[in-house]
Each structure stands twice: as C-alpha cells, then as structure tokens.
Amino acid sequence: MVQSARLTRRLDTVDEAVDRMRALAAALPERDGVAVFNRVYLAVTEAVGHRLAAGRFADPRAATTLDLRFAERYLHAVDAAAEGRRPPACWRPLFQFRRHPGVRPLQFALAGVNAHIGHDLALAVVDACRTLACEPAELEGDFERVGDLLTTLEERVREDLMPGPDLLQVADPITHLLGAWSLERARDAAWSAARALWALRRLPDVAEEFAQRLDAAVGFAGRMMLTPLPD
C-alpha cells in the first residue's frame, strides 16, 4: 500500500473531518499559511457533506470513502508538522513558509491546493480502491463530481484572495507566478497518476518510487508558488 502505513489516524465520517478542520481554524492565527488553506479545504469538505446529505452522489459510500481518504492525507501532514516529523515533500513548502510576511494569502491557498490535488488525490484514490475493493474506474464519476466542486471553490478563492483590480496588473508578479497553474490540469494528472499507481500495486517498490517522485515534483511546484513577492 503506497505510503498508507504512515497514516496513523483514520476518519470514520465527513463530520469528523469537518470537526478536525474547524478545530484547526480556531487554533491557528488567521494569517498563518496553513490556516489560509484550511479555510478553503474546510469549505470544500462542508460542501461535500451537504451534497452527500442531499443525495447528490450516485454511490454515497464510495464518495464518502474517497473524501475521507483524501482528507486524511492533509490532516496527516498537519499532524506530522505539529509533532516535529517531516510531512510529505509536497506539503513542506507550505509549512516552511506559513509565516513569511512576503507570501500572499492567495499563494498559501493555491500552494495547499497544489499539494493536495497534485499528490494526495492520486494516493487517496488508491486508498479508496483498497478500502472498497474496487477498480479506479468505479470511482471516476465521484472523482469528477468532487473535482467539479473543487474547481468552483478554486474560482472563489481567486476572487476572494486576488488583489483588487487596481493592483492586479499584467506586470504584477503574482499574475505570472500563479497564472500558469491550472486545477483542471492538476485533476487530470492526479487521475492518471492514480491509475498508474493502481496498475503498479503488485510492484510495490516501483509504486513507492513513483509516489516519491510525484511527491517531490509537486513539492517543487509548491515551492515556486510560495516565492515571496514585493508589496
């Protein structure tokens, strides 16, 4: 199981995931970079819970399992950092720069989204397939529904956290730094990575190497996204 042995805490319900994120929100300073991302992810998780309650997913058990395995990856990274352990490479830039005064809130939010979608989502699909004893293709519909919700919230993040129109000029460094990143492309890459990891499940050494390289590549992108910018 790719990296799953490192996950020490399992979630049983979406409400439990929401409670943990709300507790983080209450404990962290508002400007802390992890707090910025946590607010975004809390909104996503609450929205998934509402849609599950409304019967918006064709297979509620599969959608819940995918959502919980996904949330566990983020919360494990938070626990690792809090306990003085090294979180996955994809999350390290956010924890390293979380209090840097030259990094803007939008950078923190999207760096967290990059880590969670670019790395965690693929491994969460594999975790969910193992939990449910199913193939990735059986989760594709719920994967797309969750992805559509993430895309909507990414748009809201950009609207809420982007500088105002008077500041957002073509020459603004943040325009260049973040403009090339696309959640849709990251989702597509995550699905491809999940299918590759699943295909490699009987070759654990190769699967682990693939996951480690994915982790490192996503971490490198996150470090670039958190480049301190002038006011």
Rank of each mutant, 00 (worst) to 15 (best):
T131V: 12
T175N: 09
G118N: 02
L68S: 04
A62P: 06
A58D: 15
F108D: 04
Q107W: 14
L150P: 06
A54F: 07
T13N: 01
P60T: 01
L226F: 11
C90M: 02
V113M: 11
R92M: 08
L226G: 04
G164W: 14
D166N: 09
V48H: 12
L121K: 09
R9Y: 12
A109Q: 01
G179S: 06
V125R: 06
D120H: 09
S192C: 03
R85G: 09
C90Q: 10
V126S: 04
D166P: 04
G179P: 07
E209V: 05
A35Q: 15
A17V: 01
T8L: 13
V157S: 15
L110C: 04
L197G: 02
P173C: 02
A81H: 12
A196Y: 05
G147P: 05
L106T: 01
L123G: 09
A186V: 05
P87R: 02
Q212S: 11
T131D: 14
R201F: 03
P230W: 15
I174E: 13
L121G: 00
P105M: 02
V36F: 00
A35P: 07
L11P: 00
M162W: 15
G49F: 09
M1W: 15
L183H: 15
E144I: 12
D231R: 12
D120C: 11
D12Q: 13
L153I: 07
R61T: 13
Q107K: 00
T64C: 07
A221L: 09
R202W: 00
E144V: 08
C134P: 03
P93K: 14
A115V: 09
A54H: 09
Q96I: 08
G118I: 06
A124E: 05
P101V: 06
Y74G: 02
L177V: 00
V44R: 10
A196H: 07
F143T: 08
F108R: 01
E144F: 12
A89N: 00
G112T: 06
E16K: 07
D172M: 04
R223H: 12
R85D: 08
H100V: 06
P204Y: 15
D188A: 10
R99V: 12
N114M: 08
P165L: 13
T8D: 08
E208P: 03
V40Q: 09
A221Q: 13
L94Q: 02
D188W: 11
E72M: 05
P230G: 06
D79Y: 10
E159H: 09
A53M: 05
E30P: 01
A47W: 02
E138C: 10
A5N: 04
R6Y: 15
D32Y: 07
I174Q: 14
R61G: 03
L178G: 14
P165V: 05
L52F: 13
R158G: 04
A43L: 10
D166E: 14
Q212D: 03
L24E: 08
A77E: 01
E144H: 14
V126T: 13
L168K: 09
D19R: 15
A186Q: 14
